[in-house]
Amino acid sequence: MRAPGTSDGAARVATVLPELRFGGLAVPTHGFFVGLGVLLAAVVFVLEARRRGAPHEESLVAVAGALVGGAIGMRLSGWAEHLDPHLNPTLLEAWMFGSRSILGGLTGAYVGVLIAKRIIGYRGKTGDLFAPAVALGMAVGRIGCFLTEAPGRPTGLPWGVHAPASVPECPGCVAGQAMHPSFLYEVAFQLAAFLALRWARDRVVRPGELFTLYVGAYAVFRFLVEFTRANETVWLDLTRPQWFLVPGLVLVSIRLVYGHRRGYYDMLVHKRDSRINRRQEEGASGGP
């Protein structure tokens, strides 16, 4: 479809579907894809748990912790929008009126799993079960974002899209100008991450390291893709998610260097050594 009123003939008009219709039933598009993503993530989690022989009870506790923590975290993420505490809402206000942030949801899910495992006294790692499930679930969920939210910042690239007037206003958007389909970038990243995790799961055998790699990769990707997102910049031309990610990137970098030095990822770069395998399999304790 040719974009109206621009010289960029290759730009397309984004399809916006606030609702999907199944016969006479109207379903909110965003909720539908989030639900589908959660369902697919659950299937991948169960398959991965079976493949790894993970204990049923502990896995179920971890899932409960992740879901409850995720639901609370995405709601409370608006609690820390400003560095000045006076400008932030109270916990109750954030709960009632907060945004639905993926980063808040993921952080909440991580904390939820830690708390749930602490309650039942389980010390095993569960993150490797979650990593491929989260990747596929988010790939599907982000389709709902693409179909209902402001697509991204203005771009002259040939795959830029125009948003219809019904799409929520995005900071920095110029009427009639093509914008980055930033959610599709994330769909592509998550699908690639899902495939990469499936490839790497037999090569990274130390418990929890697959999850660490996924978190690190997503943190880097999300920081970079924010430069194409329609989110408001708050300081030094960086958005709130980017400022949230800055300390996270430092921590995950330190953790990845630590893992690399101890040979946790050697099998990924073809250093096939049975001694490394044995060292990795000696196990670990702590975190999801």
Partner: peptide, 20 residues
Amino acid sequence: MIGWALVSILSVGFCTGVNP
């Protein structure tokens, strides 16, 4: 707990009263 979380996520908080 799973029920509350799933219904909150899937109904965008409408069914559990947490949608603004």
